[in-house]
């Protein structure tokens, strides 16, 4: 519990900066309104007003908190107004994309480690794939898949997978290559087959690398799923909340969706962390 105090300190700091920014950036609107009405406003009025605007430039933290309470706790989770409903839509695409991406990443890494041609050819393409802005490629993936009749969760999951396979490839190639020469020589003295070398040495050695990659990968998956919701004009999902919020100037809604996305990301990374600890402990490598 020693970590509570520093965390609370940082949270308090963020809240202070946030409130400060809200007053500073929302003041202009108050001044404009006052000028139009021909009245003078004092600093106290500006601060008071900055806390309660309907469409603030930056909503105050308590406005976001109220919106979150309203859309997470108060609404029935099957309601389209519930952030839990939208969150689940995005999380389901994230998880499916994460499974695709991790599977693809592991397969590519196994290929790269065992096949010289793949070793020479795949990595540059994997790197190139990540230099293309995902915002540019996401609409095309959705359009192309739609034209062959694939809709719904799968296109979003593929965009997620597109982002999440990369850290897994990089991490797993490093992990599968982590056994040193001596350990490989030992296997040769047993006349072990490549399959035995893989299952008994390379794969277990790669586990710490895998989990580190998975943490990066699942966060990338979530970004992919949200991005995948933007170009479709999707009506549900955290991406859709961001989109409709920006259409209608609902900054409070945008910020609530952002906070929700951050919480979901932290929760997903946390789950991987728990899986990591359990697995490594079972393997006798836990701290």
């Amino acid at each position: 519990m020693k970590s509570v105090v520093p965390i609370l300190t940082v949270v308090a700091g963020i809240l202070m900066i946030w409130y400060g920014a809200a007053v500073w950036l929302n003041a202009q609107w108050t001044y404009d309104q006052a000028a139009r009405a021909g009245i003078e406003v004092g600093f106290g009025d500006v601060v008071r007003d900055a806390m309660v605007q309907d469409r603030p430039v930056i909503p105050a933290p308590h406005q976001v908190a109220v919106e979150l309470y309203d859309t997470v706790i108060d609404k029935n989770i099957t309601s389209r107004r519930s952030l839990v409903y939208h969150g689940w839509i995005t999380v389901s695409a994230t998880l499916l994309g994460f499974v695709f991406g991790t599977g693809l990443g592991i397969l590519l890494a196994v290929g790269i480690v065992h096949n010289r041609a793949m070793d020479m050819s795949v990595m540059p393409w994997a790197i190139a794939s990540q230099t293309i802005p995902i915002l540019a490629i996401a609409p095309m993936i959705i359009v192309v898949l739609n034209s062959v009749g694939i809709q719904g969760i799968v296109p979003k999951a593929i965009i997620s997978a597109y982002l999440s396979f990369f850290p897994v490839v990089v991490g797993m190639v490093a992990g599968l290559r982590s056994p040193d020469v001596m350990q490989l020589d030992l296997m040769r003295t047993y006349h072990a087959s490549r399959a035995q070398m893989f299952w008994k040495l390379r794969l277990p050695s790669s586990m710490p690398y895998l989990f580190t990659s998975l943490k990066v990968g699942i966060a990338a998956s979530l970004v992919g799923a949200i991005v995948g919701e933007l170009p479709t004009g999707a009506v549900s999902g955290l991406g859709a909340r961001l989109l409709s919020g920006s259409y209608y100037g609902q900054t409070v809604q945008i910020w609530s969706a952002l906070i929700a996305a951050a919480v979901v990301a932290a929760a997903l990374v946390g789950l991987i962390g728990i899986a990591q600890r359990l697995t490594l402990r079972r393997m006798g490598m836990g701290q």
């Binding site: 001596m182 350990q183 020589d185 030992l186 296997m187 003295t189 047993y190 006349h191 072990a192 035995q196 008994k200 040495l201 277990p204 586990m207 393997m283 006798g284 490598m285």
Partner: peptide, 25 residues
């Protein structure tokens, strides 16, 4: 049987598991 300078035991296997390794292979 070959013994290297470093023991090179697999950290994810118990002692019995390590000794068993060549037998499994």
């Amino acid at each position: 049987g070959y013994v290297f300078q470093a023991a090179g035991l697999y950290p994810w296997r118990t002692i019995a598991g390590n000794v068993k390794l060549p037998l499994e292979i």
